[in-house]
Structures are given as structure tokens and as C-alpha cells.
Design a protein around this nucleic acid. Structure first.
Lengths: 214, 214
DNA sequence: TAGATTGTTAATCGATTAACAATC
DNA sequence: TAGATTGTTAATCGATTAACAATC
């Protein structure tokens, strides 16, 4: 596909590409070599049209008789969403949530790896937790540039969120995944994703409640 | 506001109402009684117009000189997103992530409480974990209706996701918050929210990578 | 060919932002 | 009054869905 177009892909399409790939991996493991848009759509709870449109946007063509070649599609998605060099990730806050994400992640994606953890509890620092070396938070400015880390996952207690985010950005981090309940404000050149669990549950509760208010 | 309109509020507005309320609580704790749209917007990384539009949709009016009365606004948001009766929530899968969410939640919202946990590991069942009684998964069909639980948070291992979701729906659950990496398909009458951590991180990685590919 | 599928444009839907009148 | 703010409509932007031609 035209490489200068890749950066214009809609955010939602990027999310789905990541999920398509995961499903395609599973399909190859089951021995499938080809897949139709309606099959992919069914697994992901989408319409076949949406699948085809996403694939159109990345410039992939299937055949009307066989659908899409899974192996090729996995490779193409990888060429778009993976970077050539592996990307290093830090996680800040090694409570239950930090440990959950770390163990969840370990070995799952070879192009993305959590290579450093930080905490302010001396019980947790200068040890290896879940396979990742855990440093004290005051080492952020030193470790982040040394390991060329550009992304960080925030799983600290609410009170620490602002300060930690600031330290990370000062140390060169360009992308933050914020799992605390504190909304962050970041400069334009920093990428931020936030998914607050309480907000998610309150939203769900609202829609469930509606059904009973009728 | 016109009560029959409440159900037509956009999903994104509902999410923001939940977050406005959280910030407003903090502001009252700091002794503030009134707040302007631009103050609320700054904290949440939104535009003041967006804040005013959301408040317009819920029918709340401020004053041009004093902005919004925090206490009244908190009450109004509560009347919209909280249900009259407390809503009971179950969590399924008491690994790191399940425990993280449980402890994160305990005592935070009085209208939403996690009242039951489930796991398939006998080491974890028939005990109280993080203040919540943990049952074996084969008790789902019994405990869910008995406790009038309509929402569940899924934090099980990927292989168990489908079956657990089915059991929960059969037992009367109407809303699912899926934190596994397996996308779910649910009937129209079930509400589903999914936020997969790997997808979030891959999306972030894509945008961060773009900055360096320029 | 008939049926199933892909690829793509146009239309629609949903959410945000711009513009501006009204008010303190 | 001048300046700051709220409230609201219209315009824009982004994402999904409908419609349909092309192809195996």
C-alpha cells in the first residue's frame, strides 16, 4: 500500500487490526489457511463490510472464492502496526494491577516488551518482579533514557499520578497508558490512552439500569 | 430535565458525567463550592464548550458570574447515572487482575458494589478474598439470581471466557465488562464493554512509532 | 449461469467544534 | 459599559452502514 497513507488510518481501524491479528493467529493454530470477511466479523462482533473496509484501507485484497490468506494478512498487519525495532515499555506502580498487566504481557508480543518497572515501596524495588527488574521511582530519569523507553503504563495510586506522568515525560516518554482513576492532561506531542475501570462500570450500570426503568 | 430524554444521552456523555462527578467530589474536598466550565474542562482535557454541551444535555444551568454549583451538579449527575437501588456486581476470575479490580473498587461507590467473586481454583473458593466471598464457578447459576446480580466483570483466563460469559448470561446477567483478551459476541439485549490491554498498548505503540518514522 | 464473495463509493449516524446570542 | 461566561444552534469531522458493481 501507499506508505504515506498508513499514518492516516483511523484510530478505530488500528484497534481492530490488532484484534484481527490476534484472531488470525488463533485460526492458523487451528489449521486454517484462509478466512472470509464474514468469519472474521462474526468472531469480533462486527459486520463483514466493516472488516472489508478496514482491509481495503490497508490495501489488502482477498479472492472471492477463498477469502483472505491468513498468513499474508498477519504479515501485512504486522508491517503496519509493529515497528521495525522492538519497542520498550515501562510500568509504573507494582501493586496488583501492575503485576497483573506484567504477567499478562510476558512473552505475548515480541515487538513490545515491558523491560522496566518502578515503584516507591522499598519492599518492591531492586528486585525482579514477574520477570521485570523493579526500580525505585526516583530512578526514572536515569533508567528511561538508558533503556530507550518511549511508552509507559501507569498503575500507581491516584495521588502519585500527576508527578509520575511528569517525570516520565521529562525522561523522554512519548506515550502513556493511564490505568489510574485520575484524568491526565498532556502536551500535544504526547500520546495518551485512558480507560478508567470505574467509568467503564458506571457506564455499563447506566445502560443496564435503563432496561429496568422502562 | 425531561426524564424520557435521559435514556437518549450519548454514551460518551455518560462516560464524561461519571468523570465530572469524580472531579467535582475532589473539588468540594478542597473547599470549592462553584466551578466554571473552563476549569472542569482543563482538568479533564476537554474544551469548555464540550462541558457546557454535556450539562445542557442533562438540563443543568449555571450562572454567568459563578459558573456551576458543585453540590447541585453532583446531585443531578447522581440522579441520572445512579440507580435508586444499589446495583450488585460479580467478578469472575480472582487472579491478579481480579484482585486488583476488587480492591480498587472496595468502598469507592456505594451504589455499585462487588458482592460476589468466582474462580475455578479450589485454593481460592469458599473463602473471602479482598472482602468478597469467592465461590466456585459452578455456583454461578445459583448465586447470581439469589443475590440479584445483573452485572459481571470478566477477568478469567482466555480459554474460559466464552463458557463463563454464557453461564453468567443464563443466570440473568445483563451487563458484561470484559477484561480478557477474547472478544465476545453477545445477544442484543446484553450490554458489553471491552477494553483489551494489548490492543490499547498496540494502538499507543502505533502512534508513538509514527512520530519516529517521519 | 447462479450464488457467494470482495471492493468501493455514497449515505447515514454520532460526536465534536465553531459561531454567536444572551446574560451577569 | 466591557469582559467573562453560559446556552444553543449550525457546521464539521469521524466512523459506520447501505448500496451496488465486479468477480470467482
Amino acid at each position: 500500500m501507499d506508505p504515506k497513507k498508513t499514518r492516516d488510518l483511523p484510530g478505530k481501524t488500528i484497534e481492530r487490526l490488532s484484534q484481527y491479528r490476534r484472531i488470525l493467529f488463533n485460526s492458523t493454530n487451528e489449521g486454517k489457511t484462509n478466512i472470509y470477511s464474514h468469519e472474521l466479523a462474526k468472531v469480533m462482533n462486527l459486520t463483514p463490510v466493516q472488516v472489508r473496509r478496514d482491509l481495503m484501507l490497508i490495501g489488502y485484497s482477498g479472492s472471492q472464492s477463498k477469502g483472505y490468506v491468513i498468513k499474508d494478512l498477519i504479515a501485512l498487519i504486522g508491517s503496519i502496526i509493529d515497528s521495525k525495532e522492538p519497542q520498550n515499555v515501562a510500568i509504573v506502580g507494582m501493586g496488583n494491577l501492575g503485576r497483573a498487566i506484567t504477567s499478562y504481557f510476558s512473552g505475548k508480543r515480541d515487538r513490545l516488551s515491558i523491560v522496566a518497572a518502578f515503584d516507591n515501596d522499598p519492599q518492591k524495588t531492586d528486585r525482579i518482579i514477574g520477570g521485570v527488574p523493579c526500580h525505585h521511582i526516583n530512578k526514572i530519569s536515569e533508567v528511561i533514557p538508558a533503556m530507550n523507553i518511549k511508552m509507559a503504563i501507569l498503575t500507581v495510586a491516584p495521588e502519585g499520578t500527576f508527578d509520575v506522568a511528569k517525570m516520565l515525560m521529562n525522561a523522554g516518554v512519548k506515550g502513556l497508558l493511564n490505568y489510574t482513576s485520575v484524568p491526565l492532561t498532556v502536551p500535544d506531542n504526547i500520546h495518551l490512552e485512558e480507560y478508567d475501570i470505574i467509568t467503564s462500570l458506571e457506564k455499563l450500570a447506566f445502560f443496564v439500569k435503563q432496561d429496568f426503568d422502562e
